Simulated scan of single mutants.
Amino acid sequence: ETFEMLIRLAENYTSTLFCNAYGNMAAEAAVHVQEFFTDVGLFLFGADVSTEEFVNRFFDTLFPVVYNHEINPGPTDISLEYAECLRVARRDIRPFGNVPKKALGQMGRALLPSRTFLQALNLGIEVINTTDHLGFSKDCSRALLRMQYCPHCQGLTLSKPCMGYCLNIIRGCLADAAQVDLHWRGYIQALEELSGAMSGAYDMEHVLLNFHSLVNDALVRARINGAELSEQVNKICGPPVRKPKESPGCSFDQNKGNQGLKMFSRDSEETLANRRKEFIRHLRLYRAFYGGLADQLCGNELAAADGLPCWNGEGVV
Rank of each mutant, 00 (worst) to 15 (best):
I7R: 03
A10I: 01
E11A: 13
E11D: 10
L17W: 12
C19Q: 02
N20W: 10
M25D: 04
A26W: 07
V31F: 08
Q34L: 04
F37H: 07
E53Y: 09
N56V: 12
F58T: 08
F58S: 01
T61Q: 14
T61H: 12
V65N: 07
V66W: 06
D77S: 14
S79N: 06
L86K: 04
A89S: 10
R91A: 13
I93A: 02
L104G: 06
G105V: 07
M107C: 10
G108K: 03
R109W: 11
S114D: 02
F117Q: 03
L121T: 04
L123D: 08
I125L: 08
E126P: 03
G135H: 09
F136E: 05
S137A: 03
S141N: 11
R142L: 13
R142G: 05
R146F: 15
R146Q: 09
M147A: 04
H152T: 09
C153N: 11
L174S: 01
Q179H: 15
D181Y: 04
Q189Y: 14
S195T: 03
S195I: 01
G196V: 03
E205D: 06
L214W: 03
A218E: 05
G226V: 06
N234S: 15
K235S: 15
P240C: 14
K243V: 15
K243G: 06
K256I: 14
K256P: 01
K262N: 11
R266Y: 11
R266M: 13
T271S: 05
N274V: 04
R275S: 08
E278T: 12
F279C: 02
R281P: 06
Y290K: 06
A294Y: 02
C298K: 07
G299H: 10
N300Y: 11
E301A: 14
E301T: 12
D306G: 06
G307R: 00
P309Y: 03
C310D: 01
C310Q: 00
